[in-house]
Amino acid sequence: MGSPLGDFVRAKRDSVQPESLGLPERGRRRSPGLRRSDLAARAGISVEYLTRIEQGRDRNPSVAVVNALADALSLDRAERGHLRYLAKITGGECVAHARPEPLSRDVRPSVLETLRLLEPGIAMVTNRLGDVLAHTSAFEAVASGSGLLDADAPNLTRYVFTDPRARSFFADWDAVADEQAFDLWHAPSVESSEWFSTELAPAAGTEFTRRLNRHVVPARGDLRLHHPSGCGLRLTRETLELSSDAQQLVVLLPADEETAQAVDGLRGRPRGRLRVIS
Results as ranks from 00 to 15, higher is better:
V107H: 03
V176G: 01
A166R: 01
R13C: 04
N67S: 14
L184K: 01
D76T: 09
R59N: 15
F8P: 06
N60I: 13
F8K: 05
L266Y: 12
G147L: 02
E113W: 14
Q180D: 01
L117R: 15
A246I: 11
T206A: 08
H186T: 08
D264S: 13
V250I: 07
R273I: 05
E48Q: 11
M124C: 00
H226V: 06
T136S: 09
D183I: 05
A40D: 04
D222L: 11
H226N: 14
S144N: 07
D245Y: 05
G145E: 02
A204E: 01
V132Y: 01
E199G: 00
R35L: 07
S244V: 15
S192A: 08
G22A: 04
H215T: 07
T162R: 03
A78P: 09
F182C: 13
Q248Y: 15
G81V: 08
F139S: 10
M1H: 11
V125Y: 02
S110Y: 09
E25R: 06
G147S: 02
R271V: 13
R36D: 13
A43R: 05
I45W: 03
L242P: 08
H97E: 15
D256T: 14
V276C: 09
E241H: 12
R210H: 13
L118C: 15
A181Q: 01
P61Q: 06
P102G: 08
V66I: 15
R224N: 10
V142I: 03
G2S: 06
A175F: 00
F139V: 12
R128Y: 06
I89F: 02
L5R: 05
R52S: 07
N155Q: 01
Q17R: 08
R214I: 04
L23P: 13
L212N: 06
G205V: 03
A260S: 13
R275C: 13
V217F: 04
L86K: 09
R99Y: 13
L117S: 15
T209Y: 01
S31C: 14
R128H: 07
L21R: 03
G6S: 07
E238L: 11
D245Q: 12
A141I: 11
R35K: 07
P109Q: 13
P4K: 07
L223S: 04
H82S: 03
Q261V: 15
L253Y: 11
F139L: 12
L34H: 01
A134N: 05
V16R: 10
G92F: 13
P120K: 00
Y85P: 10
E119S: 10
T259E: 06
